[in-house]
Structures are given as structure tokens and as C-alpha cells.
């Protein structure tokens, strides 16, 4: 019986993960029914390479900003030990991404609240706006694992460190950060991967002027109707995602 209970999940994995990936590989490695690597090699063309580099750059910046915010925050939340505060920081996750990004669009627009209050030029439809949207959207995914990792460090270890003469900086670098390493690494993956593959945020806050690799792939599937090229570029992106997670796995062990 317990074995049979696994069948629906097996069907799920085959139907919604394996078969779609096979389809992508089929489309990505053929053109007009013939085998070819040209869809994958196309990544070296400027029109595909520049968006990929931009995606990697914006994602890395996003990871750094998220870590810079969530590590101090995780430490603070640990010492406050208020479940309510943690809950507050999770709240944005409950909201639909498109809706919260739409709200950013209204905030940042020429006649938006920020523009009117501070009389600054609108930054909507720039890379900066896209970066802000990404950080806002993905920050909870960094906070959760980092907070959990900090929270699981035993108080007695920290007390022992102080007893043995460590100062605050030493406790942070020798106890807290190494103790939370796994959490920090999974935060990096949880932020980097969705950031690398995102296209909705750049679409909405970039005003069609910020072209990420996700946008290029989406355009190939919708506008240009070139599923082969779209799949080929999608495979390249998958390799990038795989490499980054493997790199971090290596760091973990």
C-alpha cells in the first residue's frame, strides 16, 4: 500500500517534469525536424549574450543586497524572538507577485507617490527599478532560511563563546555565520535562481527597455513563434541554474 501511494507522485514527476524537459530538449536540439546545435550555439550571438550577462549581473546584485538585508535582520529577529515580526516579514510572500510589482509601478511612475513627494525624476522603466522589484519580490526567500538557521543556533554555544573571552565580532564571525552557513547558502540559491530566470518583473518595471534572458526566451515562444530557438536558449539557462546550484552544493559539504 505505501508503495502504491507513491504512484501519483511518480505520475506527477513523469508527466509534469520529465516529459516537459524531454520536449524542451527535443525542440532545442532540432530545427525543421533535423538535429542541430544551432539553437544552443545561438547564445553566443550578441542579441542573446547581452541579456544573459545582464541577467547574471542583476541576479548577483540581487543576491548581495538580499544577504546584506537579511543577515542583520535574521540576527535581530533571533534576539527579539518575536514570532509576530517574523510573520510580518513573510507577509509579502502571500501576495501575488504581479500585484505587488504593479504597486511598485504606481509608486515609481512619473506621477507616482515617490515622484510627487520628493520631486525626483522617475526611475520607472530602468534597470534600477527592475533591481528594486527583484529584491522586494525575493527578499522573503532569503529571510526565511537565514532566520531559521540563526534561530537554531543554541544559546549555550554563544554564552560559552562569551565566557571564553570572545568579543561580539568574534561571536559573529566564528559562531553565528559558520553556524548559519547552510541557511545562507540555500538563501543564495533561493534568490539567485528565480532572479536569473525572471521575466515578469523586468517586463513590468523595465518598460520593455530592460531585456533579460527570460524576456528573450518568452518573446521567442510568444512573439516570434520560434519554439526551437526558445527551447535551445532555455536549455542554456537550465545549465546555468544547474551549475550555480552545484557550485553551492560543493560549498556546503
Amino acid at each position: 500500500m505505501s508503495k502504491r501511494l507513491a504512484y501519483p507522485y511518480l505520475a506527477w514527476i513523469v508527466g509534469f517534469i520529465i516529459i516537459p524537459i524531454l520536449f524542451i530538449c527535443y525542440y532545442g536540439l532540432t530545427r525543421d525536424g533535423h538535429f542541430t546545435f544551432s539553437n544552443i550555439a545561438a547564445i553566443t550571438e550578441n542579441v542573446h549574450w547581452i541579456p544573459l550577462v545582464l541577467s547574471v549581473r542583476l541576479s548577483l546584485i540581487c543576491v548581495v543586497i538580499c544577504l546584506l538585508i537579511s543577515i542583520p535582520l535574521g540576527l535581530a529577529l533571533r534576539s527579539i524572538r518575536s514570532r509576530f515580526l517574523v510573520f510580518l516579514f513573510m507577509m509579502p510572500m502571500w501576495m501575488n507577485t504581479v500585484l505587488s510589482i504593479l504597486a511598485w509601478k504606481l509608486l515609481l511612475g512619473t506621477n507616482g507617490i515617490i515622484g510627487r513627494l520628493f520631486h525626483v525624476r522617475s526611475i520607472l522603466n530602468t534597470q534600477l527599478a527592475t533591481e528594486i522589484g527583484m529584491v522586494y519580490d525575493l527578499l522573503p526567500f532569503a529571510i526565511i532560511p537565514i532566520y531559521n538557521a540563526f534561530a537554531s543556533i543554541d544559546d549555550s554555544i554563544i554564552d560559552a563563546a562569551y565566557d571564553l573571552g570572545a568579543d561580539r565580532a568574534q561571536v559573529l564571525t566564528k559562531i553565528m555565520l559558520p553556524g548559519a552557513k547552510a541557511g545562507i547558502l540555500s538563501a543564495v540559491v533561493m534568490v539567485f535562481v528565480p532572479a536569473l530566470t525572471s521575466f515578469v518583473i523586468s517586463d513590468m518595471l523595465g518598460g520593455g527597455k530592460v531585456s533579460l534572458i527570460g524576456n528573450v526566451i518568452e518573446q521567442e515562444f510568444t512573439n516570434s513563434m520560434d519554439w526551437n530557438l526558445g527551447s535551445g536558449l532555455g536549455m542554456v539557462l537550465m545549465v546555468f541554474v544547474l551549475l550555480s546550484t552545484m557550485l553551492l552544493r560543493g560549498g556546503e559539504s
Partner: peptide, 14 residues
């Protein structure tokens, strides 16, 4: 021709 149009579009976007 549509392919060349789309190429132009991608070049403009990057």
C-alpha cells in the same frame, strides 16, 4: 522576412 524583423527587434531591445 518576419525572421529578419524579429532580429531587428531583438537588436533594438539589447
Amino acid at each position: 522576412d518576419m525572421r529578419r524583423y524579429n532580429d531587428l527587434w531583438k537588436q533594438l531591445k539589447v
